[in-house]
Design a protein around this nucleic acid. Structure first.
Lengths: 225, 225
DNA sequence: GATTAAATTAAACGCATGTTTAAAATGTGT
DNA sequence: ACACATTTTAAACATGCGTTTAATTTAATC
């Protein structure tokens, strides 16, 4: 779902868009995504975006209405791909009779890596966008996610409960939020950490490595009796 | 260590400070602490602080030099109490022959709760300040902590390695950062989560409860084979 | 090619921020 | 009581932000 105010025709691509020069909308969206994922939403100004995208400052408000709406459009482009893919993976787990926490979290891997289809480093960008969405208080994004994909998240909770029938509701509540915290933080501080790790351990470290480590960690924390 | 530029005499308490009316410096410090812990550093303006403290706007720059220096002074007031106390607890663990991860993290509890001596809700405030210091990119604070208390942090790492000799350096590196993430996030989103938990589970939830849950979680994640 | 709609542009608006200035007030030491 | 240092104050400064306006340019339609 996209909330872009299109004053133009409803054609899939603008008429002005040629192979060489993407439309103004797409230029804004791509540049905003790159900068948002790099610096965060609040730290990135519209002047910075429009300058690097080589479009006029006012065009953001013309095409998207406001900065908030632009943020939502950037995030939605990933959510619309990720959430249905996650939903599919979770459904596959419904048939399992024996379900482990690790299995549930590993269901995230394919949907996450599929995001590299949107952009070369789509997985990383999506996770960082998510991280900023939570660490900055972007309430409107939380509301959007909850209302658009609440059912998928409830499905996830149900599966985690099935994998950990011994955990009380309250314990599950806290641990899930700690999981979220570890994940979000890993992404927001992610690039800096990856660079430290590269220097420290002298071999290539990428987002996949981080996710592998993270999944083991959060499964361990969540399963603790 | 405090980096307050005192243009006045070096007396412990300003001469103008009476029992009824604390000095301007202290009023600023106290109000800033309260607002920083509530909303974050960047979200709190000097005008908001000085207005609620009933002091003149310019007095912040006069007494502290800059907003950055004020932030550092607020954090230092807690760090100067917490870090030596943690250091003491960690030293007590050096003698243990059998050391568990849980033991190491439980060494945080006393130093954390001791902060309630600084302020009625000192523990909560300190953790939230720390959380914002990391989630907002307050690089100067990270540098200050590293340079002022780096030895304590290294001691902590050594103990964790001793408790988990099976973990490689790299695994420890990642898991520690996930631990940090879960902790920071728990505090920044803490108040909101506590309110949700109160409503959901119908019994009192306070910062101590959160910390107890957190410690179990991070120990579980960290120990995972 | 004229007419109409859509998109782009430069400029300004209104507001908020941290910081600086210079004068006034207050306190201190002799 | 005087001279000096410290502190407080009101005002302005400089900068950056998201947004709006109104005119111009570009594209589509007849």
């Amino acid at each position: 779902m996209s909330t872009i105010k299109s004053h133009a025709s409803d054609a899939r691509t603008s008429v002005r868009e040629s192979a060489n020069k993407p439309s103004t909308q797409k230029r804004i969206l791509d540049t905003a995504e790159r900068l948002f994922a790099k610096e965060g939403f609040e730290q990135t100004s519209l002047r910075q975006i429009t300058q690097e995208a080589a479009v006029n400052l006012a065009s953001v408000n013309y095409h998207f209405g406001s900065k908030k709406a632009l943020i939502q459009a950037v995030v939605a482009r990933y959510m619309d791909v990720f959430m249905p893919a996650l939903d599919e993976q979770l459904r596959a787990l419904d048939d399992e009779s024996e379900l482990t926490t690790l299995q549930v979290f590993e269901a995230f891997k394919l949907p996450l890596f599929a995001l590299n289809g949107i952009h070369k480093r789509g997985t990383e960008r999506f996770l960082r966008l998510l991280g900023f969405a939570y660490s900055e208080t972007q309430g409107h994004l939380r509301r959007y996610t909850q209302s658009a994909f609440g059912n998928v998240l409830q499905h996830l909770m149900a599966l985690l409960h099935k994998a950990n029938p011994n955990l009380s509701d309250e314990e599950m509540f806290w641990r899930l939020h700690f999981v979220l915290g570890a994940t979000v933080f890993a992404q927001v501080s992610g690039q800096a950490l990856i660079e430290i790790a590269r220097a420290e351990f002298d071999h290539d470290v990428n987002i996949k490595t981080v996710i592998e480590h993270l999944i083991v960690f959060i499964a361990g924390g969540l399963e603790r009796p």
